[in-house]
Nucleic acid binder design. Sequence first.
DNA 1: GTAAAACAGTGTTATATAACACAAATTTAA
DNA 2: TTAAATTTGTGTTATATAACACTGTTTTAC
Lengths: 235, 235
Amino acid sequence: MAAKKKSEEIIPTIKDIPNLYNILSEEERSYLLDNHTTLAYKKNDIIYRESDKPTGLLCLGSGKVKIFKEGVGRREQIVRMASAPDFIGYRALFAEDLHIAAAEVIEPCTIFHIPRTVIYKLMQTNPALSMTFMKSMAKELGFARYRTVTLTQKHIRGRLAESLCVLKEVYGYEEDGQTLSVYLSREDLANFSNMTTSNAIRTLTTFVNEKVLAVNGRVIKILDEDTLEKISRLG
Amino acid sequence: MAAKKKSEEIIPTIKDIPNLYNILSEEERSYLLDNHTTLAYKKNDIIYRESDKPTGLLCLGSGKVKIFKEGVGRREQIVRMASAPDFIGYRALFAEDLHIAAAEVIEPCTIFHIPRTVIYKLMQTNPALSMTFMKSMAKELGFARYRTVTLTQKHIRGRLAESLCVLKEVYGYEEDGQTLSVYLSREDLANFSNMTTSNAIRTLTTFVNEKVLAVNGRVIKILDEDTLEKISRLG
DNA sequence: GTAAAACAGTGTTATATAACACAAATTTAA
DNA sequence: TTAAATTTGTGTTATATAACACTGTTTTAC
């Protein structure tokens, strides 16, 4: 959080995407290194919007991103929280569709852009690369299925508890082993959990009263992970 | 529907899965023909269950299948309705996961089973095959995202209207150009639309009163497709 | 450094939909 | 071919959660 820390941060390179770089041959690696661009985004930047056409593969080298769809009456539904190293926006690329969700920066990002033709060429010669994307997408589809059920069937407490558990999985804790390593508005928390902002606030308060969480502004500490998971499971 | 018709039906072969067969070389085709099995399932058969381990790729050659997850308090959520020729159960295969949903036969099926090693071997030599599965899965993920939003945000009328539109897309009409070519219980309709059976029945009745549908038992005619789509869109 | 905007928090009310309970009709099985 | 089970249909009640309306507090921008 300290401003000083930021200036010391080392900028990642595409070599830091192991799922991508590690499986390439020497020749493929140099082809990739010569044929990608590195982009820097700051907080609140939009990386792509709903109905944009994908131009290539995006790899999140550092930073945090939320992926969301606009629903009924502008109400937004966050469908995924991405962390580095992750692929983003590749569903639309491989489906040969337009984007069906938007991506917005939550914490400053380094993103590698690999043009469609480049990544397709690599996939032609390297079957393992296709398998990587396939596996990644299959995991996401599994998660999407799981969430469809829980967001429609669990009660408010269960939905919020589950979202917090997911955030813990994706971003982990700070050094203290308790503080969630994301800094989200109540509204984002609500949009990730399919509820109104008021209800997210209220439910957060009950979790604090029950000593499951400690909350200080947007800083959330998970005091009792087991109970949180239990609340999530029982809906 | 006539019993006689059934006995005349020709049994499909794996050549009838164009997304798979058409993109293979002669050599690959004969390898595939020698290394798959054809299975027949009847109504209400379970093809696989939640937490089963996938053993290979399943291709639906004929028939109709529902894919569902069990949610809170045994309540089932239908996440997909499959029609021939479709791949089924391949998400778990490629994610190297257990199945996270179950598949049940709605109308008698012919299914081709291609062992994991066989399909992986083909994917090693044929990059286009990987792309086929990738595209298929990307489309499904898009659909899943879309549904998450509508099932959580649309009202009951919009959800049921949307489900009927989806069924029309997937299974189409009978020869009369109006009758939905699936025969589902009210409960299945409800489980596909995230509502109780009573509410599915009631809402169906209001659609009949509004002359959008005509219903005779489980036979549903869509009288006014435009209005149905409008109801679906407006939520 | 101040004004404006966005966000957090809380109480109250309204409402969509689940839950329940039962009757009638249809299908299944013995 | 009769009984049992399942499915369909309808009315009533209960309740979870959205919607609304404010106030106080941060953050942002000029």
